[in-house]
Design a binder for these strands. Structure first.
Lengths: 106, 106
DNA sequence: CCAGCATATGTCAGTTCCGACATGATGCAA
DNA sequence: TTGCATCATGTCGGAACTGACATATGCTGG
């Protein structure tokens, strides 16, 4: 929304933001959850394919087994950064990463 | 590395990890920086294309103008989560997101 | 020149995320 | 069963990230 338009709306008594923006936030956050899930699934598949344990992957990442478990479980305390880090450490290229992001989680 | 192999190496006196893994970490982190940069560039391009100011995008994200500025500048205190959030809020689909991730930053 | 808007930079307190550890659950082989 | 490996879950102190604010810089029209 342009600042000029926002000013007009506010002058007309609207509280620009709150409701509509809350819904918007929810929609975007939902998509983020989907993305995280797709990445999580990819981590588990790739790790299994390489025959690594969670502990071994954790070591590669400088992380811990428990965090890798949460990571693959789609725990909400896991960031996209960590998921991407895991996938890169599993040898994925940016192209492969992009493909995972674009596709739905199985 | 398989646990069995690791044990063999450790039994042979190797400290598995440290040096080689440090180099590995650096390489992966470098690629994360590249990814962040590509996303940051995409945010700026997309925002400009929509004719939004940093402040307006910040409002859409429930963030602040200064953070959007840092975001686009590739500031190291900005997470991939926030970058993805910004791009989704700018209307990008997961497919578009995937394409950005796969391509190099201009 | 100077307003006014957009963007950049620095800082800070509150929140979130992290690795690490402990512990529990599951499965499989001895 | 017992023992061992793997994965799951809960918790915690510390690190990293965040939004907000103040302020600086740049840029364009008057």
């Amino acid at each position: 929304m342009k600042a000029t338009k926002k000013k007009r709306l506010e002058a007309a008594g609207w509280r620009v933001g709150s409701a509509a923006e809350f819904l918007g936030l929810s929609a975007a956050e939902e998509r983020i959850v989907e993305i995280k899930l797709a990445l999580a699934v990819a981590v588990r598949q790739r790790r299994a394919r390489l025959g690594l344990t969670q502990g071994e992957l954790a070591q590669r990442m400088g992380s811990s087994q428990s965090r890798v478990a949460k990571l693959e479980a789609g725990d909400r305390t896991v960031s996209i950064d960590l998921l991407v880090s895991a996938l890169l450490r599993l040898g994925l290229t940016r192209q492969q990463l992009g493909r995972i992001l674009a596709s739905d989680a199985a």
